[in-house]
Nucleic acid binder design. Sequence first.
DNA 1: AATATTTACGATCGGTCGGTCGGTTTATTC
DNA 2: GAATAAACCGACCGACCGATCGTAAATATT
Lengths: 212, 212
Amino acid sequence: MTIDGRIARGDRTRAAVLDRAVARATEDGLDGLSLGQLATDLGVSKSGLFAHWRSKEDLQLATVERAQEQFLEQVVRPALTAPRGVRRLWALHDRRIAFYETDLLPGGCFFAKVQFEFSVRPGVVRDRLATTFTLWSDFVDNLARLAVHEGDLRADTDTRQLAYELESFALTAVMQSRLLSPEIAYRYARRAARDRLRTLATDPDLLPEDSA
Amino acid sequence: MTIDGRIARGDRTRAAVLDRAVARATEDGLDGLSLGQLATDLGVSKSGLFAHWRSKEDLQLATVERAQEQFLEQVVRPALTAPRGVRRLWALHDRRIAFYETDLLPGGCFFAKVQFEFSVRPGVVRDRLATTFTLWSDFVDNLARLAVHEGDLRADTDTRQLAYELESFALTAVMQSRLLSPEIAYRYARRAARDRLRTLATDPDLLPEDSA
DNA sequence: AATATTTACGATCGGTCGGTCGGTTTATTC
DNA sequence: GAATAAACCGACCGACCGATCGTAAATATT
């Protein structure tokens, strides 16, 4: 046990490992993740990892959970401070598609990468990813419902459908930005979301102009 | 050399290997693709593969090309027989999102899987994938331009943007169908595309009703 | 200071990977 | 039927993988 208020050594190690694991898995995937490389990166021994996690799959699961935490901290929570209504919805989408290409996480989108990696392989990791996806989708859905309630979106808006479409634009932007050009991909993703939100908005002028 | 009209032995082997490679890579990725497993599946020797391709990367490239051929043969070409105008555009999208979940290619979408796998890794394979993507995107763009010319879509339609959005819906459907539920994912993808096409169509009734 | 416990390490295991090599089989040509 | 060349195979290599184990160092408790 440890003294209250003081962080245990093991906890610090675990945190460092998982942060690094998220970064590496974003590039190489959760399967391509090499425990030896991961340990070398951090200057620790590979065998030490097995003291914290029983198997590679356990570490993969923990990595997914850590990535989810990062996402909630750095994307979801800041978006809650945005104005309100459809503007908040827009801010959330905009922050999301920009999130994975800037200084925050320059390696790309962890979830886009990993979701496709495990989409065809049943197991605990895939189940965990599905949970993450549902959680995010529900969050967007709730924000959209709120926007409807606040009068920014039309009353007959299918908020679940809207959440799906915003997800689609973000997902494609992440892929295209690497495969082709980030500028083009972002312009498409932003415009698509803005146009969609405008068609559902009670007042189209609530959304910013096309600043491409 | 071989007698005319008769297929060389090596050609048949190459074709069989690549077809199998596309299937396996769709599940495990192009990196996760094991040459030993691939050879065992086909009842050939692993070393024999190196007689046809110099390295694994060479085989990966050939696999991408084969997948593109399959896509052109089974998705693009049949769609050209569809009526015309916006209906043809719709038929193409519909066929595409259904393509990867039916008996045609039950393993999922090869390109969705592989594009994310190589989106962060520069190299010849990624360049080849970008080519494939551009080719597909241009094709949809051209069909959309044609639909404009035929009077089905509004004259001010941004066909390139439309191609991007249709791509987004298909991409997300492929991922969601595995991660969550195929039925739901397809309903979303179909509805999103239909709604989008309706907003751009000169006559919304050209598109079928929501048959969900 | 002595003890107990967590944490980390080096060495090593069995297994799989991509790739090589020498030799054998198969099909075609003369 | 001999000669030729493409196609193919089994055995093997070094490198790397995830995982195990006994032990040493660091920390906490007494």
